[in-house]
Computed example of a mutant assay.
Amino acid sequence: MTTTKTRAVEYPADGLTMIGHLALPSGTGRGPAVLIGPEGVGLSDVERRRADALAELGYVALAFDLHGGRYLADPEEMLARCMPLLADPDRMRGIGHAALDVVRAEPRTDPDRIAVVGYGTGGAVGLELGRDGVGLRAIGTVNALTTGRPGEAARIRCPVWAGVGSEDPIMPPAQRDAFAAEMQAGGVDWRLTVYGGALHAFHHPPVDHPAPPGVGHHPRHAQRAWRDVLDLLSECLPVTEDPARPDPAAR
């Protein structure tokens, strides 16, 4: 295992003091970077472990914050925070740009080689960065098939991969179709993977608080989705090491 360094980073966004988790690979040179966006509940050890795993593979990785250092375990509180956020592309872009500024300011980052991998609300933030015309190398999302303002998908300048569970009630077939139509109309290099039998947030290990209806872990598909993320990064933002290893969040 490669020796990595991690630290918490504070930065302003959305009127809050965000607390992200930065993981750096071994060595001293500059290299590719990945922003990791969390589910609507907020930044947790799940995303921190994913950042650490990507750093072991040679990426600068920042797991960014959504809620000013808070984890919103209560579903009603989470929805009260996230629903207005998801309805406001400019707010999402502000959160994404703030995280992007942090990772670009890191001396180990090659500022021309950055990707975003996001889950749920964090994935929606990544898509909005793409719709804002940010020069990313790739955007990967899981259960974040959010659509944007008309015509703005044409500003996405990188491949987009999206994964979703076939039984996800929050991202049903109609939403999948709308997302696919938007990407296609925008001329995006896009692909969509549907994981049979999986619910919303299927990638996320079980939690110790009540989960909303329609949310559930699917261990096999969680591992597959992580491999699909790594395949996207290997194609669009390669490093020398082969990233064929399991998702650390499933441990």
Rank of each mutant, 00 (worst) to 15 (best):
D112Q: 11
A185S: 14
V46N: 01
R108Q: 03
P159A: 13
P150N: 04
S166H: 09
L22F: 07
M1W: 05
P206R: 10
G186M: 13
R176G: 04
M92F: 01
Y71G: 03
L85P: 14
M1Q: 10
V60C: 07
V160W: 01
A211M: 14
L129Y: 05
L54P: 09
H67E: 06
V164S: 12
H218L: 05
D168L: 05
L35D: 08
A115M: 00
R137Y: 02
D74N: 15
G140M: 02
R191W: 04
F202V: 09
I114H: 03
D110S: 06
L16H: 10
A185F: 08
L35S: 11
W190Q: 07
H203M: 14
T6E: 04
L199S: 11
G151H: 09
T240R: 02
A51H: 07
V134N: 01
V117E: 02
D101K: 03
A153G: 06
Q184S: 14
I36L: 15
L66Y: 10
S166N: 11
G165A: 15
M92L: 13
R224E: 14
V46P: 02
M18C: 12
L233K: 03
P111H: 11
P173S: 12
V134G: 02
E56N: 15
R93V: 15
A225W: 06
I170D: 11
E76S: 14
L129Q: 00
H97N: 11
V239Y: 00
P238A: 07
D228T: 09
A124I: 03
F64D: 00
V60K: 05
M18G: 00
I95V: 12
A87E: 11
G40H: 14
G29V: 07
G186N: 08
D247L: 00
V142A: 11
I19F: 04
E152M: 10
V102L: 08
D110H: 07
A87I: 09
L237F: 00
A144Q: 04
P213G: 11
G165D: 09
E152S: 14
F202L: 13
E39Y: 12
P111I: 12
G118L: 06
